[in-house]
Amino acid sequence: MNKILDVIEGKQNYAVFPIVGADHCARLLNLNFSEVANDGRKLAEVLEYGYNLYGYDMVLVFSDPYVEAQAMGCQIEYTPYPTIITAKTDKRFDRIPVIIEATRILKQKLDTPIFVSIKGPFSLAAFLIGIDKFLKILVKDTTAAIEAIDQALEFQKKYLSKLLAIGVNIFLGDPLASASVISPDMFEKFAYPPLRVLIDEIKDKRMIAGIHICGDTIPIIPMLDSLKADILSIEDIRPKTKTIKMGGVSTQTILHGTKAKIRAEAHMALEQAPIILATSCDVPPETNPESIKEMTRNAQ
């Protein structure tokens, strides 16, 4: 069953996926997150648990945003969830095999579309250089910025080809490319070109390509549309888009909102069908499962 594809192809009006990652599911199972993030079988187990508990329409293989950065030499710490603490160093720690193992297990076991979350090269380059420094060189040293983005793109092309060989769909998360951070001109110059390369590769393999950018995306909607991805996961779903939108329930509503408020936001989003009803970003680990169930119920 692939309600996500049906929405993209215009056969269904809506599907649902509150953006549930491994952190929330691991918490439900009282598992130490660093163990889950470093063990493909455990990662698959927690994501399968979330899928069975909530019954949404896809699974996102998402541990944390730093898998690729860590594989390229950034250092991370678990507090208890991963946070990046250095720019690129010589010490690499590769968790990509963990993601690949979890992806293979879920693909084999579940009859639902499997997506893997990977970083957009712009945001990955920012992690490699250090976010402050990277944002400054976008103005002061564009050659260095483009070199870092190219390096990130080359890495992501190899990672992507491994994922596409398994036959899964891809979500490209590029949080630093939002208009809350950089100008639309900078987006066009630095973030757009590598996203385009990766999306073309996903589409060549006939898999579904999604883009997730939180924060302000209104000024860059036309460019996002022209990337020709299948899904745009964005915080503010009010603007008209050519691409199928994903979103509708704010992260704060899913965390603290009453059931009535969750219902109200979900219904407003569904009025914009075709749509994939989702949270505007990944659900906080502490989210009450009843809130996620309430949201999911509204699109079923």
Partner: peptide, 14 residues
């Protein structure tokens, strides 16, 4: 007014 974005503000702060 979205004339400047975070990179410009960081450099101006510096």
């Amino acid at each position: 007014e979205q004339v400047y974005f975070v990179p410009e503000v960081l450099l101006a702060s510096e």
